[in-house]
Design a protein around this nucleic acid. Structure first.
Length: 486
RNA sequence: CGCGGGGUGGAGCAGCGGCAGCUCGCGUGGCUCAUAACCACGAGGUCGCAGGUUCGAGUCCUGCCCCCGCAACCA
């Protein structure tokens, strides 16, 4: 028995949760549940990133104070875990007093790598925003929105010596001490690191970004939101003094989307190194999800909320789709047709029916008695390997091989024919194998479909089958569930 | 010359040097324990285009075309 720590990224609370983040929660949940199943002590943290200009802006639009606005949205992220039966046991908000205090503490500890520098950039007073050097050049020094020249502005900021750790990070990644999966992401990061990291500005002027954690000892500056948000992965454990931190860091797996890879493969490791802490053991980078082939966007009105997906077929069906039919190592697509097909063919017909026919035969031929069950004989190494490398889709495929194998077995053995012949011993043997196989399937399924696994296990618990009321996955008529517009 | 991913039967994908494979859909047959479910067999692809390396290329190299993301300090 050991300790296991898995994290999701903490979503920015400028908008409601959508299925992209739901997927990330599911990935983490599978790992957490699997670890628990193997007897580990698990901390599974998620949370909300709540500071920064954009939240302040959205709050103002809603006529709320930033904190009140953040309260509202972060609550929706918290609810998401329940909606999806996600077993996270820590929810950290960057506005938690604990996080704020610890962030200040961390800043002080990082001080040796923080220096005051000048941020120089092109600024448009019309947009009240900086533009990049390239953009300024592309527009020939004139803001196209306001038709006035950009001003060159200098601003005092604190900088973090990211460049100092460039080489060490590269080494940690190449040696897999800090293991990034999938490989393509790892290669991407390596080439990024080889091209060199520059020091980054890690604070903002208070009058520019007022909603943030103050830089200790400088009333004029707030911490740059990203810098501070990354700290959540250790403040959630009570860094530096809490026992949880001592027991659970480094994280076993951190899960992020591909858009924030730079922060997690550059800034974050550098911060840890500066603090003298080990890097996470593994970073899993997932892709994005489209809806019916299109990128989700408000203007298209196709933003899909997790609740919409759960509604028609239930939580486990939703989990199943995201975990199996969205490729773990690539971008994926959500489609109602494919969800319906997966539900009917795989969950109802193959798995549900395998349970049903087994139960029915045990009842019919053996008055519900199962007798002694043989031990599981399925080779789980492919499954284990898939989970270790976060290939959730492959892991489920491996389970389904067993499901299909069971249906084939039943058709080959023909228990109904054996019953007719009256060979009771042989029949008992065959049916016992079926039950045992289903129990094993349930075991492997638990991290992915916890409710379904529990139901199957309940059926074969004693030496007498306990039929499920109704069916495991009732067949649905094809409904016209269109994407809910927003 | 910003970075990356991808183009394989109707759909979704695997294969990454040695007879082109899986799931769905479609067709035929079998079975009757089961949620009109299950099982078997079959049709369907010149593996984006053009060159090259090789005894042999979806698989390696070069060039081109087409999709899709990311980045440009918003987090």
């Amino acid at each position: 028995m050991s300790n296991y720590f898995v994290t999701t990224s903490i979503p920015y609370v400028n908008a409601d949760p959508h299925i992209g983040f739901a997927m990330e929660l599911l990935y983490a949940d599978v790992l957490a549940r699997r670890a628990r199943q193997l007897g580990d002590d698990v901390i599974f943290s998620t949370g909300a990133d709540e500071h920064g200009g954009k939240v302040a802006e959205k709050a103002a639009e809603a006529g709320l104070a930033p904190k009140a606005f953040a309260d509202q949205i972060s609550e929706r992220f918290r609810d998401l875990c329940q909606l999806l039966n996600v077993s996270s046991n820590r929810f950290i908000r960057t506005t938690d007093p604990g996080h704020e205090q610890r962030a200040a503490l961390i800043w002080k500890s990082l001080k040796k790598d923080i220096y005051k520098g000048k941020y120089i950039g092109w600024y448009c007073t019309g947009d009240e925003a900086f533009v990049t050097e390239t953009e300024a050049k592309a527009n020939h020094g004139i803001c196209p929105n306001h038709n006035r020249p950009y001003e060159k502005i200098e601003e005092d900021n604190y900088f973090f010596k990211l460049s100092k750790y460039n080489q060490k990070i590269l080494e940690a990644i190449e040696s897999k001490e800090f293991n990034i999966v999938p490989e393509t992401r790892r290669n991407e990061v390596i080439s990024l690191l080889k091209s060199g990291l520059e020091d980054i500005s890690v604070s903002r002027h208070k009058d520019k970004i007022g909603w943030g954690i103050p830089v200790p000892g400088d009333a004029e500056q707030n911490m740059y939101v990203w810098f501070e948000a990354l700290m959540n992965y250790i403040t959630v454990l009570g860094y530096p003094e809490h026992q949880d931190f001592k027991n659970f860091w480094p994280a076993d797996v951190q899960i992020i989307g591909k858009d924030i890879i730079r922060f997690h493969c550059g800034v974050w490791p550098a911060m840890l190194m500066s603090l003298g802490l080990p890097l996470p053991k593994q970073l899993y980078v997932h892709g994005f999800i489209t809806v019916e082939g299109k990128k989700m966007s408000k203007s298209l009105g196709n933003v899909l909320h997790p609740a919409d997906v759960v509604k028609p077929y239930g939580i486990d069906a939703c989990r199943y789709y995201f975990l199996r039919h969205v490729p773990s190592y690539e971008d994926g697509d959500f489609s109602w047709d494919r969800l319906a097909a997966a539900y009917n063919n795989e969950l109802a017909n193959e798995l549900g029916n395998a349970v049903q026919r087994t139960v029915s035969m045990v009842e019919r031929y053996q008055a519900g008695k199962t007798g002694e069950l043989p031990p599981a004989d399925h080779d789980t190494s492919a499954y284990e390997e898939a989970l270790a490398s976060c290939r959730f889709d492959k892991a489920i495929e491996d389970i389904w091989e067993q499901v299909r194998g069971l249906n084939q077995y039943i058709d080959e053995e023909k228990p109904w024919a054996i019953a007719k012949e009256g060979d009771a011993d042989h029949l008992r043997e065959v049916l016992a194998y079926q039950c045992s196989s289903l129990i094993n399937i349930a075991e492997l399924l638990e991290p992915f479909l916890p409710d379904t696994a529990a139901k199957i296990k309940a059926v074969f618990k004693g030496d007498e089958v306990q039929p499920i009321e109704g069916t495991l996955f009732p067949k649905h008529e094809v409904k016209n569930d269109t994407v809910v517009a927003n």
